[in-house]
Design a binder for these strands. Structure first.
Lengths: 204, 204
DNA sequence: GTCTATAATTCGATAGAC
DNA sequence: GTCTATCGAATTATAGAC
């Protein structure tokens, strides 16, 4: 019998959150001023502090949300007991590339801020305890794939997928490739990476 | 007949430069205050402006030095006409890993600042016009390696080499691996990556 | 809850003595 | 060349009216 189920994203608090996330993700913590966030969300500067107490606290809240969302996506894939190793790799790569295409600034943002603001992200642990990890170890033991440190396999999958997005400002500039060419290249990588990982794991 | 050949790195200007480079590389432009640099170099705040005019100019000078040093290393390898494709890849990987081991914060620093401060870094172009690029295209044409977009090969080599350093704060924390384990892992990768690249290029 | 006005602080830069 | 002292702008945070 809720009188007026307030649509969650038209709340003032939510508008500030959305604006902050957009700006922080694109420009980083220091470069974004509280005034920018206020302007972007169409509210007054004082309201930001009313809702979030401080810039620092607002940032941490957003960081935490991003991390949680990100890890949930990964976790679902690596812990699915129904898929085999090869499929998991393919799904991981596709998940990353799709996420990155619509959120190209995410990785540089996350990695830049991971050292400072107490990010609770636990990437390595999620992998270490996953069903994926067990499958890798088994496959190695059974001699189905070339011996590899599972941590290195993880680094390879993630690195091949997200590195171009982290470095894109170096390739995509005046003398570099265009926006369109970059997108096309990433679409190509989305198809190629699983095969490259397979090649790495193939026994000679 | 120079009276007292002043050892270049005991100059006040040089001390400021060294301090600035250390701090900027580790924490980024915004996070470092001119007062921090003054304290680190053991001089007064006013001297910084006396020698470098402004924080911005000091930063750009350091950025430029780093870039130049970095690109020279790469350029020498990719343009050496005496080495074959396989050797070039091995040397590139070794160059990267050695550089990163002694300078682990460099990549995140460079990539974080590439979008803002007019960095003249021209990474893609250096590769595009290199002897290395020609060798790749020839090898593909002659059917010696599997077809691959040279840009993708470059992204793979660089990504596999430097990504772990960019992401290390996510793997190397309370619940992650230790500093020593990380170093050992990187030493392992230095040996493995050339083989992985070969596998990617090998025809089925 | 939302605003205006302003306090409090931080920070880059400079003036001016030595 | 080097320092102390301080200015002025930018920025976060808050007081207080509505």
């Amino acid at each position: 019998m809720a009188a007026k189920a307030k649509s969650k994203d038209s709340t003032t608090e939510e508008r500030i959150r959305v604006a902050a996330r957009k700006l922080f993700t694109r420009h980083g913590y220091d470069a974004v001023k509280t005034r920018d966030i206020a302007a972007e969300s169409g509210i007054n500067l004082a309201l930001l502090n009313y809702y979030f107490k401080s810039k620092e606290k607002l940032f941490e809240k957003i960081m935490q949300e991003n991390m949680k969302e990100f890890m949930q996506g990964i976790s679902g894939i690596v812990n699915d007991e129904q898929t085999n190793l090869e499929s998991k790799i393919k799904r991981l790569v596709e998940y990353y590339l799709d996420m990155l295409m619509s959120n190209p600034d995410m990785p540089l943002f996350v990695l830049s801020h991971a050292k400072k603001k107490g990010s609770k992200l636990n990437f390595r642990e999620t992998f270490a305890q996953s069903h994926f990890m067990k499958q890798i170890q088994e496959a190695v033991k059974e001699g189905k794939i070339a011996p590899i440190n599972p941590l290195n396999l993880m680094l390879n999958i993630v690195g091949l997928s997200i590195f171009p997005f982290i470095g894109r400002h170096i390739f995509q500039n005046e003398k570099g490739i265009t926006e369109d060419a970059f997108i096309a290249l990433m679409a190509e990588r989305k198809k190629m990476i699983p095969g490259w990982i397979d090649a790495i794991l193939r026994k000679k």
